[in-house]
């Protein structure tokens, strides 16, 4: 227990300025991540609707798919994709922090671990893309 504390009424409580997140790259990225969740959420809702339309039969699905082909939706999806990639990268960097890898006595540099993760991720994505394209073709 601590007895004396500063008198709360005499303290000055600074407010965070509205632009605080512009001050530093990492704060900006933090805000981006917070914002990105909106995009990802909308993307997921769209996906659900899409699956629902699929169950309604090919006609309504094609109509829906056409609407998604509008420039607005394409831009939206491009942004959502960028955010998803950004989240994945954050995730890979954080796994490097969570699970430190050791080689003998020395810790492997975290950026290297993250880079390896990301490399593996790109390879896997390319394989999936290839499978997808070859299925289509």
């Amino acid at each position: 227990m601590i007895s004396p504390r500063p008198d709360k009424s005499m303290l000055y409580y600074p407010k965070m300025p509205a632009t605080w997140w512009l001050r530093k790259r990492s704060y900006f990225l933090f805000m981006l991540r917070e914002l990105s969740s909106v995009f990802i959420a909308i993307f997921l809702v769209v996906l659900l609707v899409q699956i629902y339309q699929l169950s309604e039969g090919p006609k309504s699905y094609t109509a829906f798919a056409q609407r998604l082909g509008s420039p607005g939706w394409i831009i939206f999806h491009a942004i959502a994709l960028l955010f998803a990639i950004y989240h994945s990268i954050t995730w890979f960097f954080s796994t490097a922090v969570v699970l430190p890898l050791r080689l003998g006595k020395r810790e492997i540099p975290r950026n290297l671990v993250a880079a390896l993760n990301i490399g593996a991720w790109i390879v896997v994505s390319l394989v999936i893309l290839y499978l997808f394209l070859s299925l289509k073709g």
Partner: peptide
């Protein structure tokens, strides 16, 4: 914590609190 990671950046003693937080989550 949403993994801003600035705590670890500014720490003068290389404590790496961000790692402690992430590892605690796991």
């Amino acid at each position: 914590c949403t993994f801003v990671g600035e705590c670890t950046e500014v720490c003068p003693k290389e404590v790496d609190p961000a790692a402690a937080i992430q590892r605690s989550k796991v």
